[in-house]
């Protein structure tokens, strides 16, 4: 009724209420913490990498509906994918979220993640959507530093 559907779509709200891959995995090979100091969102991301593939992934922490559902949708997308593919997804996702009106993005590559495209119209919420992805990047590249979306 308040035209919030472009931001809070039903599927986004569903991921917010029932986040997928939420918790911890048994033998993580990589992990990283992410923090958004502006709103206090915190995420812990764990990965099990095997033969260049994401064998398992989980996240935990506290966050708003956008950061939680973005993390949840990301983890669903990652399982079984090669690291090269993950890298391409990250690039495409970032491009979609930070695009200017009229700019295009790779909808085919992004698949279900395209649901979050409306966030590009809410500049104050872009960092909520990208926190999980930046944390993922850090986990894979083992930067061992808390990611901060300043």
């Amino acid at each position: 009724m308040y035209d919030l559907e472009d931001l809070y779509q039903e599927i986004v709200m569903d991921h917010n209420r029932r986040p997928r891959n939420f918790g911890e995995i048994k033998n993580p090979t990589n992990s990283a913490d992410g923090f958004n100091p502006l709103c206090g969102d915190q995420i812990k991301l764990q990965l099990h990498l095997k033969d260049g593939l994401v064998a398992d992934v989980a996240f935990s922490g506290v966050g708003c509906a956008i950061s939680k559902s973005s993390a949840s949708m990301m983890t669903e997308e990652l399982k079984g994918k090669t690291l090269d593919h993950v890298e391409n997804l990250f690039g495409a996702f970032r491009k979609m979220i930070t695009r200017k009106p009229g700019d295009s993005y790779d909808a085919d590559l992004l698949g279900d993640l395209e649901i979050l495209q409306g966030i590009s119209r809410y500049p104050a919420r872009i960092k909520c959507a990208t926190l999980a992805w930046h944390t993922l990047h850090s986990a894979i590249h083992d930067e061992n530093e808390v990611v901060s979306t300043k």
Binding site: L4, L7, C39, C64, I66, A124, R125
Partner: peptide
């Protein structure tokens, strides 16, 4: 149930 950030946007 509602994060402050979501409350603020709403």
């Amino acid at each position: 149930d509602v994060h402050p950030h979501d409350m603020g946007t709403f």
